[in-house]
């Protein structure tokens, strides 16, 4: 295994989840503004995701 892919794998492990959360947050922030009632429901998921993750991290052993 060469050194570069390993570095890339580390990068993905560290920043992968935060980027997915960030994209979903942004989508949620905009959907309530742009997409009517369905957008509003999605915003509760997207913007609320960080709270769910923190709750999961807190309750996990």
């Amino acid at each position: 295994m060469s050194k570069v892919p390993q570095h890339r794998a580390t990068w993905r492990r560290v920043f992968g989840a935060p980027i997915v959360i960030g994209v979903l947050s942004l989508a949620g922030l905009l959907s309530a503004l742009l997409a009517g009632d369905p957008g509003r429901y999605f915003s509760w998921f997207g913007v609320g995701l960080p709270i769910a993750i923190a709750a999961w991290a807190y309750c996990r052993k």
Partner: peptide, 13 residues
């Protein structure tokens, strides 16, 4: 680190 990284986008907005 955890609370900071999951709220980055929201806090920047």
């Amino acid at each position: 680190n955890l609370l900071g990284v999951v709220t980055i986008v929201w806090a920047l907005v």
